[in-house]
Amino acid sequence: MNCIIIEDEMPAQRILKSYIKKIPDLNLKGSFQTASSANLFLKNNDVEVVLLDINLPDIPGIDFIKTVKNPPQVIFTTAYPHYAVSSFELETVVDYLVKPFSFDRFLKAISKAEKLINRQALSEEESIFINVDKTIHKLILNDILYIESARNYISFVTAEKKLTIIDSLKNWKEILSPTQFIQIHKSFIVNSRKVDKFNSSYVYIQNEKISIGRTYKESFQAQMRPSN
């Protein structure tokens, strides 16, 4: 796993680096003293785990991670135990380590992060088989951009193909994960992981512009927007 440290105190950074060196599967890709200096790195590099202090000089760690699109797993490393409850309101927070913490406690947190990452990787490769004109096609769920309904047919659209079968959108809404596949129109379900941008009227996925139905607007925006 690739990780970074965001910690403004150099003694604390040195302790984290010494712990990381003891774990063969954990690779330190960078260390930063401010959230703003780490932000660009996160945008351009593959990072699975962030070791994040809460009391940073530019922006609190909790506030910073809310601004990161598709944030990595977060392990807070802090001297302030009273932020623990609010930190766990963030979905990507794996653990909360209060300084000073032992290597064994650090290893436990890393193990938790690794298990979550492996579980997510498996779910992303989850697949289904669908019958199109007497031919069985394997479809990886995470490859789906959106599902479109037209009369008695639905089409699964990926970047490479479009598979159409006789079925209902309602049926697939009940089958698929409601946090990943969100209905935004009576004729469309979108894969939230594939959304590039959206406004009050449209969702944009790659080159597609899909209308948001009035009935679905509020629930869609509530699911997609980060909490403040």
Rank of each mutant, 00 (worst) to 15 (best):
D53G: 02
I54V: 10
I54N: 00
N55S: 13
D58Q: 02
D58I: 06
I59G: 03
P60C: 15
P60N: 15
G61C: 01
D63S: 14
F64G: 10
F64M: 11
F64D: 03
I65Q: 11
I65C: 08
K66D: 05
K66V: 05
V68R: 01
N70D: 14
P71F: 09
P72N: 06
V74A: 04
V74G: 07
F76V: 00
T77S: 12
T77L: 08
T77R: 10
T77Q: 10
A79P: 04
A79H: 00
Y80W: 12
Y80S: 07
Y80V: 11
P81T: 12
P81R: 07
Y83L: 00
V85E: 11
S87Q: 01
F88S: 07
F88W: 06
E89R: 13
L90Y: 11
E91C: 11
T92A: 14
V93F: 00
Y96W: 08
Y96D: 06
V98F: 02
V98Y: 03
V98L: 02
S102C: 01
S102H: 01
F103W: 00
D104T: 12
F106Y: 04
L107P: 05
A109T: 04
A109S: 14
A109G: 02
A113M: 04
E114I: 14
E114R: 15
E114P: 09
K115M: 13
L116T: 11
I117T: 02
R119C: 08
A121V: 00
L122W: 00
S123F: 15
S123Q: 15
S123D: 15
E124L: 13
E125A: 13
E126L: 10
S127K: 12
I128Q: 10
I128E: 09
I128N: 10
I128R: 12
